[in-house]
Design a protein around this nucleic acid. Structure first.
Length: 422
RNA sequence: GGUGAAUUGGCAGAGUGGUCGAAUGCGGUAGUCUUGAAAACUAUUGUACCGUGAGGUACCGGGGGUUCGAAUCCCUCAUUCACCGCCA
């Protein structure tokens, strides 16, 4: 969520930068500034009325204390009018404040100057790209065929027990999955991230804190009886740990990681993009989260991207790095890098990681602040990234490493799987 | 799930209708003293908002109510603790 003061101070510049997202903020900014003006006026008036009633109430108290009951009762008459006014003004102030936050919720984050303009994923900027692997056997299979052949994943069983998008991992498939989780967590720990196991279900306030609500309401599973949401990513509980927190300068850097299953309704997805492991309703992911001083956050973003790249290199997967364009970047993000691995048999790149700097966008909603050198509270910067999302990594490992005699496990994983071939 | 007790500032803890944004202690910060430190002493010490400023407003778990006036009374929700029940 943007700060209204920032809109006031940098209006035209922000409008310009939001154009990169194809978001025309002119009207909403003007509305907001008018509303803010109105709110300010009403608030000041209300404060005056309150001050007056407080004063009278105090006087009455004093009169009673001195035993001047009659005078006190007379003073009471003066308050009726004030009370009435205060009531209507309070209502107006609340209404205006609600309208303002509602409007603020509609505005996406301001893109970083380096975000390229564009309308869709086709306009993303390719920063780096490996050559796809060429040495596949003649009739190379997509991972869903491999999963069936080697009995690693049972999609139909998932359909029977739960529904589409909820596969069963079986035998070596399950162990490979678990190996990846442990590998990712160990790597993260070595890189200085503290491991967290958060709740997999969160309340409404947390949904708002990281920005899943209200904009992505339909994407989360909602347990209505208890009004709780299944997490779509560990980002939600991990970042909300810092909701309503005031950090000290020396608390930085904050580096945490967590493995969680992720639940996504993926309403509206269809076709080859949901085939096999490409898009699931439940999947596993290790997430890294940072809370940082505003001065450091972009250096940290680069560091995070480099870290996730190092994982892909260790897994020996061909990958590419994209800087998302204005049309593809997430609502809450200021700058996002996507990492995609090559799926040899499908002959497409699959997104396995998305690493973003949210600057103060989440922090403002979270009220996540730190005391700066001058002991002023300032909003911190939050960042996160997948490190990594499992299914597509699994898909890519299966497809890229298939041979006529079976599937080779990447060297770094063998200590974790306990086998080197499927 | 049932019954009872509780929820106050960074922490501990007072406050049961009026001058309480809130005693006191600890902690934090600054100063005095000291060669330096400790101790002692003195001062200061929450957050947000409105206002150029003086100043003002709001906040004692959340929400609502009673009252001229609420940390204090009432309703409601949440959380914590204790005991009982159930249970991985």
């Amino acid at each position: 969520m943007l700060e209204i003061n920032r809109i006031k101070a940098e209006k035209s510049e922000l409008i310009e930068r939001l154009k990169v997202r194809n978001f025309d903020a002119t009207t909403i900014f003007n509305d907001l500034l008018t509303l803010d003006e109105k709110w300010r006026e009403t608030k000041t008036e209300l404060d005056k009325i309150s001050a007056e009633s407080n004063k009278i109430a105090k006087e009455i108290g004093m009169l009673f204390g001195q035993g001047k009951v009659e005078e006190a009762n007379k003073a009471k008459d003066k308050t009726a009018n004030l009370k009435e006014k205060s009531k209507t003004l309070t209502q107006q102030v609340n209404e205006l404040a609600n309208l303002i936050t509602q409007k603020l919720y509609e505005i996406p984050n301001i893109p970083h100057p380096s975000v390229p303009a564009g309308n869709s994923d086709e306009d993303n900027e390719i920063v780096f790209e490996d050559a796809p692997k060429q040495n596949l056997p003649k009739n190379a299979l997509p991972h869903w065929e491999l999963a069936k052949t080697y009995n690693l994943i049972d999609f139909e069983l998932g359909v029977k027990v739960t529904g589409a998008g909820f596969p069963f991992y079986i035998g070596k498939g399950a162990r490979l999955q678990r190996a990846l989780i442990n590998f990712f967590l160990d790597e993260a720990r070595d890189a200085g991230y503290k491991e967290i196991i958060p709740p997999f279900v969160v309340n409404e306030a947390s949904g708002y804190g990281t920005g899943q609500l209200p904009d992505k309401e339909g994407q989360m599973y909602h347990c209505q009886v208890d009004d709780l949401y299944l997490i779509p990513t560990a980002e939600v509980p991990l970042t909300n740990m810092f909701r309503d927190v005031i950090l000290k300068n020396e608390d930085f850097p904050i580096k945490i990681t967590g493995y969680t299953p992720c639940f996504r309704r993926e309403a509206g997805s269809y076709g080859k993009h949901v085939r096999g492991l490409n898009r699931l309703h439940q999947f596993d992911k290790v997430e890294i989260v940072r809370v940082e001083h505003p001065n450091d956050s972009y250096g940290v973003l680069d560091e995070m991207v480099a870290y996730v790249e190092s994982l892909l290199k260790k897994l020996e997967l061909p990958y590419r790095k994209l800087r998302l364009c204005g049309g593809d970047i997430g609502f809450t993000s200021a700058l996002t890098y996507d990492l995609e691995v090559y799926s040899a048999a499908q002959e497409r790149w699959l997104e396995v990681s998305s690493i973003s700097n949210f600057e103060t966008f989440q922090a403002n909603r979270l009220k996540l602040r730190f005391k700066d050198e001058n002991k002023k509270n300032r909003l911190a910067h939050t960042l996160n990234g997948s490190a990594l999302a499992l299914p597509r990594i699994l898909a890519s490992i299966l497809e890229n490493n298939q041979t006529e005699k079976g599937i080779n496990i990447p060297k770094v994983l063998i200590p974790y799987t306990g086998f080197d071939k499927i």
